[in-house]
Write a protein that binds this DNA or RNA. Structure first.
Lengths: 241, 241
DNA sequence: CGGCAAATTGACACATCTCAAAGCCTGTGG
DNA sequence: CCACAGGCTTTGAGATGTGTCAATTTGCCG
């Protein structure tokens, strides 16, 4: 199995891929690397010459403020071309960190440049993937500003449920999601203590279980209602782009 | 003066534009429209066939939750190709609203498609502009999660100061910024009352004045320090992309 | 088995929201 | 030119939400 199969799956969910598109992706020169939990795949203020794509595990974008506090601004699952941004931004404004043990594939920027010169269609699909990241970030902003912690966590779980489905990582109604409460707190913008209390409250509703790093969706519909969840922003529709 | 001069200025700040790039932009078919304060330029859940570019005034992206609350996830100034997203996303996950009286230019998606087929370089610059929007959103997420309201507002003012400078809309140390406190509250994720109190506290520091919709920067350096502001994410550097 | 990070709980402090009222500013119509 | 309406801004008081600190328990990994 190629390191690009998750990516191909994710893109194919948004637009029909030609054989040429597939071939261009599958023949991309790259190197594969593994990272332990907590390792940084890409470091803030660095100037990468390659962009990385998650092929296993869960990664996040993080920044640290000068008082030592941390904020996570995005989570990425297999198939996400996490660091495509760097191809255009050049200088990293954040780090990419492994929230679980994970695996990623690194593609030289020169190859991305070549794709952008040779295949307008694939370029638009790569562009699309960065634009979907932006849509997810806007949804996170709405959650942080206007959802209660209860609703915010619910929204996050609904989102991850669908995103992991795209990657084919949901089995029935369960999926691996071994995210710690400290990491969760840094995503939600809350204290660890409050995350713990909110999860307790949420568990009592029995819309899902979450033990041993594995989530089981018991009542997605009610959870989505509690979260005021509208999946439009995930662009889960296949259409010409 | 063409409706595209702000855009050209913004792009030229990030990479050297060829004569061909300029010509392609300047000859884009388009229509120009004006909007009163409060009008929606693009409506949530619609399926635009054109993308809009702000050429005057300030616009924002907004979403409403089912309880009636509103969150603003981005602000856009002249030169920002606000709705370039829609070219790829197809279905709007938010609205674009005029925070002040404003003017915008609408470009048909067919023309953007043509550019993406004909000019890889300009395509990358358009792509870049959506990726910078994403970087700004990540900075907003960090502000919402981990900055105090005092620091959050300071950060926002530093950001707008630099972004309006790019557009050439800062005169000396002052710029128009006629944003109401209700709108600010919906950006910051706070109540109107708290915004009022925080602004009062901030004014007492004398780092800036803000009367009659006009901001004067008195001590940008101290304000940036209070905000923990690092402009890296705005990509204000000209380099080959 | 031991050690360390994660998760949980309680008590208390503090930040922020809600509600309510008053003052201010601006544009409009008489 | 004035009166008025409506939205914005400010202020106070009290309720609620969330953070901090500290201690305990749990669970995992070496």
């Amino acid at each position: 199995m190629s390191g690009f199969s998750y990516l191909i799956r994710a893109l194919a969910g948004r637009d029909r891929l030609t054989d040429n598109d597939r071939a261009l992706i599958e023949t991309l020169p790259h190197r594969r690397r593994s990272f332990p939990k907590g390792a940084q795949l890409v470091v803030e203020h660095s100037r990468p010459t390659e962009s990385c794509l998650v092929t296993g595990g869960i990664t996040a974008r993080e920044v640290f403020l000068s008082d030592g506090s941390r904020q996570i601004s995005a989570m990425h699952v297999p198939g996400d071309f996490v660091d495509l941004h760097a191809f255009l931004l050049k200088l990293m404004d954040h780090s990419v960190v492994a929230l679980t043990e994970c695996e990623a594939v690194f593609v030289p920027h020169g190859e991305l440049l070549r794709i952008s010169e040779q295949s307008p269609h694939l370029t638009r699909l790569f562009w699309l993937s960065t634009v979907i990241d932006g849509a997810i970030q806007r949804a996170w902003i709405a959650s942080m500003g206007r959802r209660s912690p209860l609703s915010h966590i619910s929204h996050l779980l609904c989102e991850m449920y669908l995103r992991l489905q795209v990657a084919g990582l949901v089995e029935g109604d369960t999926f691996d999601f071994p995210i710690s409460q400290p990491d969760l707190a840094d995503m939600l913008g809350l204290s660890i203590v409050h995350v713990s209390r909110t999860l307790k409250e949420l568990r009592q509703l029995n819309y899902f279980t979450w033990d041993g790093g594995r989530v089981r969706m018991l009542d997605y519909k009610r959870l989505a209602k509690l979260a005021d969840f509208d999946p439009t922003y995930l662009n889960l529709i296949q259409e010409p782009r």
